[in-house]
């Protein structure tokens, strides 16, 4: 039998191309997005995450490639030899503005983070161009294409009641931009539990458990990895949700401390978000090779025991 395997590395092929007038050289297979980032050219992304395979659905990352009729998603398209890429052409800027504006006009982006806020400013997003928001509806229907006729006086939105069906996390799909990250993280990109899928179609497409059952009836194992990848606060730890509801959530008063999970011996790094000497949520660093940002139910939620201690008894 063979001694230690010598993996023969093929010499890496280098691709030469032009991005915003600059010549670039990157290893073959590098995406346009990665190449742009190596050039410090900012390309906005919403559905892209380093730890997940790109689904290229948000189209915020589109760039213009000479010779290509439509714009091209930078997150998934590899850079090719002699490609000429513009990251800030008029067409690109228009599309980015519209993508952000479409989202802002239909979902609540208020917790999508400072980058998104900055891009909205930068690209001149004005969701009110589409008229006043329609009143919040009930849950989106599961069935394809089911919606009433419109007279166009109000703009349709994804507004709907928050789903609170367990004590660990809530689902506020009025914030969902359908980036598929939760489905990917619950599925074969990480957790392999497959509690979530995309159901319905078109504007009625939505993230769903099987037959829209509440989480406790679903396959969910409460690893919280969907919450960990959600970019807009549509999935939120109940601890955070409750504080926000009570108007007490205050990130300026929070610290984030890295430590190691107190349960099994795998050694997952936990980021403890602490406000007023209480753990208010637990995340894990995306770039840590042990977890890739993922945890299990115990690491994610099993911290209550340190906060539920009675005052220490006097030593006898």
């Amino acid at each position: 039998m063979a001694p230690p395997l010598q993996v023969k590395q093929l010499p890496e092929r280098i691709v030469h191309a032009t991005i915003d007038g600059q010549r670039v050289a990157v290893p073959e297979g590098t995406t346009i997005l990665a190449a742009c980032r190596s050039q410090a050219a900012e390309v906005p992304t919403l559905c892209f995450l380093e730890t997940l395979a790109p689904v290229n659905v948000c189209r915020a990352c589109v760039v213009e490639v000479e010779g290509s009729r439509a714009l091209v998603p930078a997150c998934s398209r590899p850079l090719e030899t002699d490609m000429v890429v513009s990251t800030r052409s008029k067409r690109v800027d228009k599309s980015r503005r519209m993508v952000l504006e479409f989202l802002a006009s239909s979902v609540d982006m208020s917790l999508a983070g400072p980058d998104v806020e900055r891009w909205m400013e930068e690209y001149g997003v004005d969701p009110d161009r589409y008229g006043p928001k329609a009143a919040a509806g009930a849950d989106l229907d599961a069935r394809a294409g089911r919606h009433g006729p419109t007279v166009g006086a109000e703009r349709a939105t994804a507004a709907q009641p928050v789903k609170v069906d367990n004590d660990l996390y809530v689902r506020d799909y009025s914030r969902c931009i359908l980036c598929y990250k939760c489905v990917e993280a619950c599925g074969d990109q990480a957790q392999h539990t497959f509690a979530l899928a995309v159901a319905g179609r078109g504007f009625d497409a939505h993230i769903a458990t099987e037959f829209e059952v509440p989480l406790p009836e679903s396959a969910c194992v409460y690893c919280g990895n969907c919450v960990g990848v959600c970019p807009t606060g549509a999935l939120m730890f109940k601890s955070e949700y409750d504080l926000r509801q009570a108007n007490q959530w205050d990130e300026s008063r929070q610290t984030v401390t890295d430590t190691i999970c107190p349960y099994c011996g795998v050694g997952c790094t936990l980021e403890l978000h602490v406000q007023d000497n209480a753990i208010v949520k637990v995340t894990s660093p995306m770039d840590h090779e042990v977890t890739s940002g993922h945890l299990c139910i115990k690491g994610r939620f099993g911290f209550e025991f340190v906060q539920q201690r009675p005052p220490a008894a006097e030593p006898r």
Binding site: R59, A60, V99, S105, G131, R155, A156, G202
Partner: peptide, 21 residues
């Protein structure tokens, strides 16, 4: 609007805004 698959933002929302307009 009915037949958009809903996958990408420009079509999912764009077809709705077009219908309203």
């Amino acid at each position: 609007r009915d037949e958009s698959c809903g996958q990408c933002v420009p079509c999912r929302v764009g077809t709705v805004r077009q219908e309203e307009l």
